[in-house]
């Protein structure tokens, strides 16, 4: 499967591509909030009523739909609808189940983004939303691959969106997944304490089985759940033997997020790559369940601009030319994923 175009709204000025020559925008306080572009494709009257996630998701999707009609809209999200959910909960409690307005309720199901994309682009193709938390995007990737295999002449709009609303952030903080600002004064990735800095993004890809005008090829995807460290090492070895065709090591785009409880998996992963370059993409986007969509977009930007994100380098030898990129992420110490991409 190939990516032929992509668009991202994140805490970087990503709507105009990734800036490889400057240090990434630093987190505000202890989180990464998206820099939203002007939404010229969305009617102002609709924009006002939209929650942030739907707005960001549509804002990233519509530019890719200007000249292309995909046969499917396949979305991933873990948090979509949460903001509207809690706003509606507030109404229920505060008005004691009195007369409530339904807008928040209607927008509280996670499929509202995929539904809105279908509605605004008048697309009646396959339309689905995957919500498997830290594996939502990887499952959407598998779905897109299956769909394209069955509909080889068509294209699929594949995307992910998660927003950082105050309620979601509060739940994460209460459950011990958020670092205080003081713990990340220099770099939150090196603080050696539990939790992370959270972030948000909406990332969209037009995908196809044809290499024509492609930015990159998705060579393989593997997902698994568990806490077994030996299993991780074995899987990575098998995965690379089966799928990595390059002569040298792939470059690692690591989802390391500064949580000392999860670091062991990333360290094991680095051992598997040995002397290859290791970049930590969450330094640019923060932690969120569908963060691998940002990593995939960053891989696309790297190939498009033929540059490595040196400002995100952890260690290792940076190759002179474009190489395969291995994206590894471990969400909350349980949900692991590997995505291998190749330049075209």
């Amino acid at each position: 499967m190939y990516i032929t175009s992509q668009y991202c709204i994140s805490a970087q000025h990503s709507s105009s591509g990734f800036n490889f020559s400057q240090a990434p925008e630093s987190p505000a306080e202890n989180h990464f909030l998206a820099i939203e572009p002007p939404y010229s494709f969305i009617p102002v009257s609709s924009l006002r009523r939209m929650g942030k996630l739907v707005r960001m998701g549509l804002g990233a999707a519509l530019p890719l739909l200007q000249n292309t009609t995909p046969s499917a809209i396949i979305m991933a999200t873990a948090n979509a609808g949460k903001d509207d959910c809690v706003n509606f909960l507030n109404q229920i409690i505060e008005y004691d189940e009195g007369m409530l307005t339904p807008l928040n309720f209607v927008q509280s199901t996670p499929n509202s983004l995929a539904g809105q994309i279908g509605l605004i682009s008048q697309n009646r193709g396959y339309n689905i939303t995957h919500v498997q938390l830290g594996h939502a995007f990887e499952n959407a990737l598998l779905d897109a691959q299956m769909w394209l295999t069955d509909h080889p002449e068509t294209q699929v709009l594949l995307g992910a969106a998660d927003d950082l609303n105050r309620y979601h952030e509060l739940y994460e903080q209460k459950a011990g997944w958020v670092k205080a600002k003081s713990e990340g004064e220099n770099n939150f990735l090196d603080s050696n304490t539990p939790g992370s800095f959270h972030g948000e993004a909406a990332t969209m890809f037009m995908t196809s089985l044809s290499a024509k005008n492609a930015i990159l090829k998705i060579a393989a995807v593997e997902i698994w759940d568990g806490e077994d460290e030996k299993d991780l090492t074995d899987r990575v070895e098998r995965f690379l033997t089966a799928h990595h065709k390059g002569a040298s090591q792939p470059v690692l785009y690591s989802g390391e997020n500064g949580d000392c409880r999860i670091l062991k998996y990333y360290n094991l992963m680095e051992k598997s790559i040995l002397d290859g370059a290791k970049f930590r993409y969450k330094q640019a986007c923060g932690e969120f369940p569908t963060s691998t969509s940002f990593a995939l977009w960053l891989a696309g930007e790297s190939y498009l601009q033929k540059k490595w994100p040196l400002t995100l380098l952890k260690n290792g030898t940076v190759p002179d030319q474009m190489e395969n990129i291995l994206i590894y992420n471990c969400y909350k110490g349980i949900q692991h994923s590997l995505i291998l991409v190749e330049p075209v």
């Binding site: 499929n111 995929a114 339309n127 995957h130 498997q132 938390l133 499952n139 997902i223 698994w224």
Partner: peptide, 12 residues
Amino acid sequence: GCKGIMNTINTA
């Protein structure tokens, strides 16, 4: 202790 594909779908 599932090792296969796990997923959740939401289309309301």
